[in-house]
Each structure stands twice: as structure tokens, then as C-alpha cells.
């Protein structure tokens, strides 16, 4: 017999409970609850959700990547070079940029394995490399003049729903199924839970890390493409900061920094929390710099919740002895 346990319930649906709470609070501000604003928030943040799906795969498998923002930056300006300067068609641009994202993310993994470092440290270094590369490629100027078909990725609507929202939900469903209904998903959790045991259980851990890196890289690149297409311009500052939103959102979504836990739908809720708070702060006319402070505090809260959950479990563990 399983008893209802409030702690477990809260842990499982924490992101949705916080999200509901925030929506209730912001519903007192004028304009927040209009259909237009809701769609606007989703369309604005679809790219962040897509990026977070990729980063979530990494974090669930026990890795963390800080270079995500600059992978996006490099992807964005590369899209500009390809589509604007080289006049390549949108389809070709998208394929090449996706390939670049996959490559950069796999490079992070390759270097981590080569240096036998965790991905966290490796990406502190590659972050700087990708940042430099992005500014060199873009010559630090904003690239404009994307083709209409490229911009459509971020700006078209199907009915009254912007395309990015549709792409976001389709990917959310796919990633969710991939994680919970396939053995690939089981393996992701296995790596995050205990990589050593996973290896001895016959899972090719090294191959899995490359596959997860590739998947994350593709999602990160797609996120950059949608963001660039929506803005209609690419600059080296396009992207950086997304890693912050993603990691905070993922933590709020109940994924542990130690890996091995979490659900994609909760990650979605977690990212929405950040998005709505940002939107709410803008509507309330809060200065950008205060917003930075507020976001930092939210991240600390997210980490605090993660640590709290860990401690709670350790108390239970002690009690077992």
C-alpha cells in the first residue's frame, strides 16, 4: 500500500505548483492574462525551452555544459554568414547549422574524455573559445537581411499560433517519449545514476555520451536558429544567457545537478517559471539590472531546492541504518 506523501507529491510536481503560484500572482497585473500575452510569452521563450530540452538530456546523464550560450552564438552568426552573405537557401543553412551545433557539443564531450575532466570544467574553457570564434566570424557586427523563408522559421504562424510554439510542443512530446518510453531514456538515467554500474551492466557509456551530446547539440543549434529567425538578425550576443535560463529552469523542473532524475514536462514548466517572471518583471517596469539580481536569486532558490531534496533523502538514508 502506498500512502499519500505530501513531500513526494511536492517534489514530483514542484515546478507546476510554483508555476501555478506565479501565474496567480501575476494575474493581478493588468494585461498579463490576455491571450495575446500568453502566446507572446510562449513564442518568445520557445527557443529557451528547446535549448533546455537538450541541456536536460545532458544534466540527466550527469553532465553539465556551460558553453551552451556561446554554441548558440556561434550557430547564430554562422547562420547569418550562410544565409545572408553566402545566399544559401534556408534548408541548407538549417542543416549546416544543426551539424555545427552537433559538432561543437560532441567536441566538448571529446575533450572531456580526452582530458579525463568533467564536462563542467572543459566547457569553462570551450565557452571562451566559442565566444572568441563567434566574434571573429561575425566581426562583431550584426548580420541582417535573412531570407524570408529563413525568417519564417521564427515568425510564421499556423492559424494564429506562431511556428516556434508548435515546434516546441512537438519536440517536447518527442523528447518526453524518448526519455520515458524507450530504453535510450533508461540508459540516460543509468548514466546519471551511476556511470560505472551502467558500464558494467553492458551499456556502452562512451557511445551513449556521444549520442546524448549530439542530440543536445542539435537541440541547442535549433534553438539558436529559431531565436535568430525570430529576431531577423544575428549577433554574437544572440544566445549567451540561455544556458542560465536553461540550467535554472531544469533545476526548478526537478532535475538534480547530480543527474539521474527529472521529467521533460517538468523542465518545460521550470523554464516557463523563469519566462513568466521575466515577462512579469518587464510588465511591472523593473529595471534590467534588477532583473539580473532577481534571476540570480531564483537560481539560488532552485539550487537550494535541489540540495534540500538531497538532504531529505540522506536523512531517510541515515534512518535506514
Amino acid at each position: 500500500m502506498k500512502q499519500f506523501n505530501f513531500g513526494d507529491f511536492f517534489r514530483k510536481y514542484m515546478a507546476w505548483i510554483i508555476l501555478a503560484f506565479i501565474i496567480i500572482v501575476f494575474s493581478f497585473t493588468p494585461n498579463f492574462f490576455s491571450a495575446g500575452n500568453i502566446i507572446n510569452i510562449l513564442a518568445q521563450n520557445a527557443y529557451a525551452v528547446i535549448c533546455s530540452l537538450g541541456v536536460a538530456f545532458l544534466m540527466m546523464s550527469g553532465d553539465i555544459d556551460l558553453s551552451v550560450g556561446y554554441i548558440m552564438s556561434l550557430c547564430a552568426v554562422t547562420a547569418g554568414i550562410l544565409n545572408v552573405q553566402l545566399q544559401l537557401p534556408a534548408v541548407v543553412t538549417v542543416i549546416l547549422v544543426l551539424a555545427l551545433g552537433v559538432l561543437l557539443s560532441m567536441l566538448n564531450n571529446f575533450l572531456s574524455r580526452l582530458l579525463k575532466l568533467n564536462r563542467f570544467m572543459t566547457t569553462v574553457a570551450t565557452m571562451s573559445i566559442y565566444q572568441g570564434a563567434s566574434y571573429i566570424v561575425s566581426k562583431s557586427v550584426s548580420i541582417r537581411g535573412f531570407s524570408e523563408s529563413f525568417k519564417a522559421i521564427g515568425q510564421a504562424r499556423i492559424g494564429s499560433i506562431p511556428l516556434p510554439i508548435i515546434i516546441m510542443f512537438v519536440l517536447l512530446i518527442i523528447c518526453s517519449i524518448l526519455l520515458s518510453k524507450t530504453y535510450f531514456g533508461q540508459y540516460v538515467y543509468a548514466l546519471g545514476g551511476n556511470a560505472e554500474a551502467a558500464n558494467l551492466a553492458g551499456i556502452n557509456v562512451s557511445k551513449m555520451r556521444y549520442i546524448i551530446s549530439a542530440l543536445a547539440g542539435a537541440l541547442i543549434a535549433l534553438s539558436a536558429i529559431i531565436l535568430t529567425a525570430r529576431l531577423g538578425s544575428a549577433h554574437s550576443t544572440t544566445g549567451p544567457g540561455t544556458e542560465f535560463t536553461a540550467i535554472t529552469g531544469i533545476l526548478l523542473g526537478g532535475v538534480s545537478v547530480r543527474g539521474g532524475e527529472g521529467k521533460m514536462t517538468s523542465v518545460f514548466a521550470g523554464v516557463l517559471i523563469i519566462s513568466i517572471l521575466t515577462n512579469g518583471m518587464q510588465l511591472a517596469g523593473l529595471d534590467t539590472y534588477y532583473q539580473f539580481v532577481a534571476k540570480g536569486i531564483i537560481m539560488l532558490v532552485a539550487i537550494g531546492i535541489d540540495v534540500f531534496n538531497l538532504n531529505r533523502r540522506q536523512v531517510v538514508r541515515k534512518a535506514d541504518k
Binding site: 533508461q186 543509468a190 551511476n194 551502467a198 558494467l200 553492458g202 539521474g260 533523502r313
Partner: peptide, 18 residues
């Protein structure tokens, strides 16, 4: 604990993983 099982996961997850 280090090589044989996934401590943080349920029994029903551990048994079929291989």
C-alpha cells in the same frame, strides 16, 4: 554500491536494466 546497482533508483528500475 559503486558498480553493481543504481542506489537512487527503484528496484523495478534496477532489475531489468541489463
Amino acid at each position: 554500491k559503486r558498480e553493481g546497482i543504481f542506489l537512487e533508483y527503484p528496484i523495478e528500475w534496477n532489475i531489468p536494466i541489463m
